[in-house]
Design a binder for these strands. Structure first.
Lengths: 212, 212
DNA sequence: ACACTCATTGACTGACCAGTCAATCTGGGC
DNA sequence: GCCCAGATTGACTGGTCAGTCAATGAGTGT
């Protein structure tokens, strides 16, 4: 169970996982060879198969490891009863955006190779992805119970819109369609929540605010 | 230019494209062989290379063909000046959703293999995808000019949320996370517009509606 | 110092498959 | 009937690469 660190304190398995992130992010999962990963890790080809049964298992591992952290985070956020729905959603958006900020390569791999390619792989991933939907839907559901959100849009549908907006945001960063600065990251957290909670329409005002 | 229909009125090129849609949708672009496409089309292996220079060119063709139709549709919708923003957005959502309803395999291939995998391929696709963003942003921009939408969220960001919600919706159908019935398709058109325009939050009421 | 276990190595194999090409067919023009 | 252009065929090739494996190294217990 514990990492088999016989070497000078170096966990080769971890080394391989990290190298895989770099290589998968750079060349794409399908367009890189296992030898690329081994080279990047500074490790012999065969060692990759000592720790993993296949190339795909490396990707699975990366995904499951990180995704579980996110699922736990979402659950933890939902359980903080002092938070209003908007605040919970802000925390979720913030967590995901910060994940990208701190580990852009890893998130790129997860989004591009797993989340956005869920057909290629087994139901394993789809189930996990569905769990994320579900976690967000729970938060929305709570907001409806507390009378903070309206009932015309189902929690599932709302969760889908929210998650979709965030995934699109990350994709736009990944594909360099949007600028990636610290300020943009922070601003995006608030914007995505505002867009989803309040919408794009102008609030109806009593006085038609036309001046000068 | 014109289809070279020497055969008994059968355009083999079209036949191959249609077969590719079926096969790509069923097994995924990366997991199918060119021979699968040829077999599905009832055509010899080599003929595929008579009409297309590579497997990837088939995918390009499918994408560009369909995507251009959508770009044109978005532009056409935007130019209908009698429509309010919400109506324009409804039309756009409707167009995309109907595309999926009428040609689910083709849309699945485009979304899963191209749109959601834009890294693997050239800037060609990214440019086209960006154009779609831009078209929607134009519509939003118009809405802001007419005082129908607020200014706190940029048109680009708004377009991203809108497009993201729709793509997530299609993905959910594609991966069977949501039921696919005629009624659901119709309902989704309105819901996605409501979610994006009005948001999830309850409209603020003067009386704090606490009863019971 | 010996034996045992597990880590590590990298050359090799077997399968797969995109793309080629020379041969054959087909139908129209003359 | 003959010729040509383009359509059609499918066996073959060349390269790629995931995964195997037999050999070697390195740490640990006795």
């Amino acid at each position: 169970m514990a990492a088999p660190v016989r070497n000078g304190g170096v966990d080769k398995r971890r080394l391989i996982l990290d190298a895989a992130v770099t290589v998968f992010a750079r060349k794409g999962f399908h367009h890189c060879r296992v030898s690329d990963v081994a080279d990047e890790a500074g490790v012999a080809y065969g060692l990759v198969y000592h720790y993993f049964s296949s190339k795909e298992e490396i990707l699975n591992e990366l995904f499951l490891e990180r995704w579980q952290i996110m699922l736990d985070a979402i659950a933890a956020i939902d359980s903080r009863e002092s938070l209003a729905v908007r605040e919970k959603l802000y925390e979720v958006a913030g967590f995901i955006i910060d994940s990208y900020r701190n580990q852009p390569d890893l998130m790129k791999v997860i989004i591009v190779e797993v989340t956005r390619a869920a057909n290629s792989f087994g139901a394993l991933h789809l189930g996990k992805i569905r769990e994320a939907y579900g976690g967000i839907a729970e938060i929305v559901e709570g907001g409806r119970r507390d009378g903070e959100l309206k009932e015309t849009i189902s929690a599932d549908f709302a969760a889908m819109c929210f998650y979709g907006a965030i995934e699109q945001l990350l994709s736009a960063w990944i594909f360099d369609l949007l600028p990636q600065t610290e300020a943009e990251f922070e601003r995006a957290k608030g914007l995505v929540v505002e867009a989803i909670c309040d919408g794009l329409a102008l609030p109806v005002a009593d006085e038609p605010g036309v001046s000068g």
